[in-house]
Design a protein around this nucleic acid. Sequence first.
DNA 1: GGGTATTAAACAAACGTTTAATTAATTTTG
DNA 2: CAAAATTAATTAAACGTTTGTTTAATACCC
Lengths: 211, 211
Amino acid sequence: MKPSLSIKQVQLLDTAETLFSQKGFDGTSVRDIAEAAGINTAMISYYFGSKEKLMEEIFERKSLNIKEKVADLLKDDSLDPLEKMYSLVDMYIEGILSRKTFHRILLCEQIINQNPSIITLVDKMKTKNSEYINDLIRLGQKKGMFKKNIDIPMMTNTLVGTISHTLVNLDFYKSYHHLENLKDEEFERVVKKKLSVHIKNIYKAILTHES
Amino acid sequence: MKPSLSIKQVQLLDTAETLFSQKGFDGTSVRDIAEAAGINTAMISYYFGSKEKLMEEIFERKSLNIKEKVADLLKDDSLDPLEKMYSLVDMYIEGILSRKTFHRILLCEQIINQNPSIITLVDKMKTKNSEYINDLIRLGQKKGMFKKNIDIPMMTNTLVGTISHTLVNLDFYKSYHHLENLKDEEFERVVKKKLSVHIKNIYKAILTHES
DNA sequence: GGGTATTAAACAAACGTTTAATTAATTTTG
DNA sequence: CAAAATTAATTAAACGTTTGTTTAATACCC
């Protein structure tokens, strides 16, 4: 068990997460973080050892783990395979859009990060989550509800890719639909709903035999 | 008309593009670029004015412009609306995957870039390209081939999002399908084909009335 | 020889981290 | 329970690098 974090440590982590998501890891200095958090610069090295390790801490705290939820889904007899996939879709929409700042960081760092611990962590997450989606689709195929020739990684690419690209273009989406006057939470609700309907439509069409 | 670039300028631009796509803009120093290109550091300021302006030059050279191609598509009477959308899909796959390094940079900089010229440039590109997709879909609707209630920006999010997420996870996709022994060009051909089939399936299902 | 290209060196500013000193909190002890 | 001892938290300053850019001198070319 990891030792729990102090209030100031959490403050630094949250502040750093915000700044990293806006200016990137290399574009944010430890002085930026400390000043924005109202904490002395030296405290970052004191608490986390280094700026790099602070970043690792952010990843360990915020990485999406769908293990238990998918396990629950798999053994839930009240849902048919397609409904289970629908649940998975909503799980990803919620998981990504409720962690907007972290996922913006993740999107960048997947490309430019060189930190071995973070690479390992992200790779593990991808592999695990990919296996769960595999299990869910195989289940639907075994029950005869899903088509046989399905490109499973491409299904994941469309799921995560659509949500991520929506996340990056949230402002664009807002002005396109003239939703500037909506409150933040309400706009987020609208986007989640639109994404949900859209991706479920896709999944139904690609996975099942009929529309 | 912009003055044409010298050999060394192009060398610097290409080297910088590669490094930016691997380590990010802020993670790459002008000394990194100059050394990798075998050119004196001062030449970057001499040629481009600053590191920032060098980045702008990269964006101006590599930004995807589908204007003419879509204009041709719109007035091509030999293709029905769905075939035109298929052409658009392949246009995006080709446009993104044949500019892998630049699009990795674009993915990052959409999130963390603060440079006003680049923000403007990217916004214009998005708006323009979005309008063209609009035109193509509206055409299909007018001809009665496409459904009426289509969330057009979501169609774009799925198109660009799926391709981008595939680009970021190319290595993952390679090992998943055990394609490590394939030559680079061959692997790229496979991915493009898979993407093409996959996204066209989605577009057909979402846009038209029947599958 | 006049304009362009190229260089090594120097520039100040910003970087992540460490240090040494001080304050605050906690524990030990009488 | 208070005083002393010990540990933890916090600070401003300094450290050595690295950063992007500029300079002033030199080489090159028509």
